[in-house]
């Protein structure tokens, strides 16, 4: 055996070890949350409202979906229409400016987005801690993602298909709504699903925009909202066993939600 072969073998061994090690940690993290979650969760938790120390997490589950829903309603239309402008009308310079600004949004730490949501939406616009403030703050985070993926999907519509439509007398809007968007549909749906999964797992943006509610919010503004990640955070920081159980139950629901959304999106992409 010469030294070259030994080096090659050691590198291979190291590589395999690290791959297995990383996968083991992934399994440990998800596994521990799933197992603890399964031990903690009860049917009662799923159907009762609670306050992170007693009761259930029904209000948090509903609140999470409401917040994500507002985020999607905010980000998807803006993302799609911006992408349409960029692909169909935008000139190079303008497009790269939008690109830089969306990159800035993507790179902004979530707690800074939360602070902005607080200063702008909660205080300046007077939404208070609410669905609208929390949801839009989530939406701001989702927006660059939706925009970018839609832009790519629209760019990928084959030229010969676009020309076919144009040669049949399609006006710009026929082209966009009857050809480009249907062709980009899968990309848009996948990115929306992934945006939902990202939004459902966010916490820092919501701390000072959504607040907490022991029930279901009764209005879009000035009515606070409960959400699952808050239960995880607050629950594990409290001494009682039951709080920990609520935290793990919420963790279980979060991880199942996020992973299933990812699998669905991978399936759609096929």
């Amino acid at each position: 055996m010469n030294i070259r072969v030994i080096k090659d073998f050691s590198f291979k061994l190291l590589g395999y070890f690290l791959i297995l090690f990383i996968i083991a940690i992934l399994v440990a993290i998800t596994g521990s949350i799933i197992i603890n979650g399964l031990h903690s969760i009860t049917l009662k938790m799923l159907i009762e409202n609670g306050d992170t120390t007693s009761g259930g997490i029904f209000n948090a589950i509903v609140g999470t979906w409401m917040l994500v829903g507002v985020g999607i309603l905010f980000s998807v239309p803006i993302g799609i229409f911006s992408a349409i402008f960029i692909v169909e009308y935008g000139w190079k310079r303008y497009n790269s400016i939008v690109r830089v600004f969306t990159d800035v949004l993507t790179s902004t730490p979530s707690i800074v987005l939360g602070l902005f949501g607080y200063l702008f939406l909660v205080i300046q616009l007077g939404f208070g801690y609410s669905l609208l403030a929390g949801g839009i703050t989530l939406g701001i985070m989702m927006l660059p993602y939706i925009l970018r993926v839609t832009e790519i999907s629209l760019t990928e519509v084959p030229t010969n298909i676009k020309e076919a439509a144009i040669s049949l007398g399609a006006k710009k809007m026929d082209l966009i709504f009857r050809i480009m968007l249907p062709y980009a549909k899968n990309g848009i749906i996948t990115s929306t699903i992934l945006a939902i999964s990202i939004g459902a797992g966010e916490t820092a943006q919501l701390l000072y925009t959504a607040g907490w509610n022991n029930g279901i919010p009764n209005s879009l503004i000035k009515s606070q909202v409960a959400y699952l990640t808050y239960v995880v955070w607050a629950g594990i920081n409290q001494p009682s066993n039951y709080s920990h159980q609520l935290a793990f139950a919420s963790g279980l629901i979060l991880i199942i939600t996020v992973f299933s959304l990812i699998f669905i999106s991978k399936y759609i992409k096929r």
Partner: peptide, 11 residues
């Protein structure tokens, strides 16, 4: 009307 070299029906 224009018919192209490569058939290009819509999906």
């Amino acid at each position: 009307g224009l018919v192209f070299q490569q058939p290009n029906p819509f999906n």
